[in-house]
Every structure is written in structure tokens, then in C-alpha cells.
């Protein structure tokens, strides 16, 4: 399988705290990977480094064979990296439909002139987008509320929307930061459905999540991170018996159910 993303020798310090220490990761096309680890292991920092919101002190990030280490976030998003945040970030002042339309990626019509010059193509494309957006709204059970402002949605609905935005973006790599945290059980099912759509679309996915049964069901394998490094890579069964993993959870509140 083709390597989609590789990061090697990633170091990142915040002041004196060493958050990432020579981290190494490789993601192949179509893989779904669970990312686990105690709080402060550097999971979200890793997402920030991959999506460009933080530049590493040392190390290289390659995406689709290209060095993107110093690319700004918008360039990475354009090349096909989508991420969600622990605290949902969507355009709250805009409608649900506008949020989805924003996520679709066709850069040919960004400038008003180019849209005007090929107005027919543009309108046809927008029509397709609206249809696809409607399909996604149905997945979220929000098809009758596309005109609502995103900030009026419940927390769970906003989280679903942030997943749907990833699907709309057709990103090749999805970075999902605790997509199920804080969701009610019915919402969890909907979120899982959305993530399954990503899997069917052959997107590569990295999911930060503590819910192990979910990871077991969804992921090809899991990575276990502690103290800024990947300690373990493999399936969950073996992870439970891994001595280093057990040690890093000693005294921690998370249990490996």
C-alpha cells in the first residue's frame, strides 16, 4: 500500500516541557488507525503538527511524498488533510448548509471572475454539492434544518457536523480528535456511521479516542503514545498485555476495558 503520510524524528517543546520526542509515524492509504495514550502524551500536539497549526522544532512531515513540514495549515487542508478539534470548531454564524458548502473543495471557482466566466459549470457543480450536502444532512438527521445557524445546534449535532465536513472535503487524511467524547448513545451511532462513510471512501483516518470497543470495531490497528513517543503499534489484545503500556497507565484514571 502506498504511504500517504510519514512523519519522522518529530520533536516539539513547549517551554521546558518536551511534548514530542523523536516521534515516528507512517500512515498508508485507506488505513484506519486508533491513537491512544494517557493525557499529556502529545496526541493532540501530533495532530497540530500534521495539520500545520504547530511547527515542529525538529523533524520532517511528508504527505503524498511531498515535504510539507513548513507548509501553512491552509495549504495542507488543500492538499487533503482534514482535522476535527476536541472543542468543536465550525463557522457558528453560518448556516449548516453554508458550512457544508464551505467544506467542498473545488478551487477553480474561488475567484468571482472565474465563477462568472464559467457560470454554467459553476452552477452545475454547486447543484451537485447541495445534493451531496443534503445526503450528509440525512446521515445527521438534520435534513429539515439546513437553514439553521450552526451555533444553534446542540453540542452533539455540532460534533456530527464537524465529521460531515470532513466527508464533504474529500480529504485523503482525516484526523479525528475524540469524535465520540461527550456524545449521547444515539449520537454515538450517528457519529460512527459518518466515520464508516469515511472508511468506505478509502480515506486514511487517525482517531484519538479512549473508547476501546469502538477502536476495536473500527481500526486496522492502534498506536499507543506516551511521553511524546509511539510506545506500541499493533492490535488492542496485545496492547493490554504490553508492559510499557501498563506502566504508563499506572496511577492514571483511564482503564483498558
Amino acid at each position: 500500500m502506498q504511504v500517504l503520510l510519514s512523519a519522522s524524528g518529530i520533536f516539539k517543546n513547549f517551554g521546558r516541557a518536551e511534548v514530542l520526542r523523536g516521534l515516528q509515524i507512517e500512515v498508508k492509504r485507506g488505513e484506519t488507525i486508533g491513537l491512544m495514550g494517557p493525557n499529556g502524551a502529545g496526541k493532540t500536539t501530533l495532530f497540530n503538527v500534521i495539520s500545520g497549526f504547530i511547527l515542529p522544532d525538529r523533524g520532517k512531515v511528508h504527505f503524498l511524498g511531498r515535504d510539507i513540514t513548513s507548509d501553512p495549515p491552509y495549504k495542507r487542508a488543500r492538499s487533503g488533510i482534514y482535522r476535527t478539534f476536541q472543542r468543536v470548531r465550525i463557522a457558528e454564524q453560518m448556516t449548516i448548509m453554508d458550512n457544508l458548502l464551505l467544506a467542498f473543495q473545488d478551487r477553480a471557482y474561488e475567484r468571482p471572475m472565474s465563477a462568472l466566466c464559467r457560470i454554467r459549470d459553476w452552477l452545475a457543480l454547486e447543484h451537485t454539492w447541495r445534493r451531496r450536502a443534503f445526503e450528509l444532512l440525512k446521515e445527521m438527521n438534520l435534513e429539515s434544518e439546513k437553514g439553521r445557524l450552526a451555533r444553534d445546534l446542540s453540542y452533539g449535532q455540532q460534533k456530527l457536523l464537524s465529521l460531515a465536513l470532513g466527508i464533504a472535503s474529500d480529504a485523503k487524511l482525516m484526523l479525528l480528535d475524540e469524535p465520540l467524547a461527550g456524545l449521547s448513545s444515539s449520537m454515538v451511532d450517528r457519529a460512527i456511521n459518518l466515520i464508516k462513510i469515511m472508511v468506505r471512501k478509502r480515506s486514511s483516518i487517525i482517531i484519538i479516542e479512549h473508547n476501546t470497543s469502538f477502536l476495536e470495531q473500527m481500526c486496522d490497528y492502534v498506536l499507543f503514545m506516551a511521553q511524546g513517543q509511539i510506545l506500541y503499534q499493533g492490535n488492542l489484545q496485545e496492547l493490554r498485555e504490553h508492559p510499557g503500556v501498563l506502566r504508563s497507565y499506572l496511577g492514571g484514571q483511564m482503564e483498558l476495558a
Binding site: S51, F53, P72, P73, Y74, K75, A77, R78, R83, R89, I90, A91, E92, Q93, M94, L102, A103, Q105, E110, S169
Partner: peptide
């Protein structure tokens, strides 16, 4: 709405 958010959407 937010420059940072727009960047995350891939907007220049």
C-alpha cells in the same frame, strides 16, 4: 467569522 477556522478549511 474566524481567520483560523478559514485556514483549517483550506481557504487562502
Amino acid at each position: 467569522e474566524s481567520r483560523e477556522l478559514a485556514t483549517a478549511y483550506g481557504i487562502k
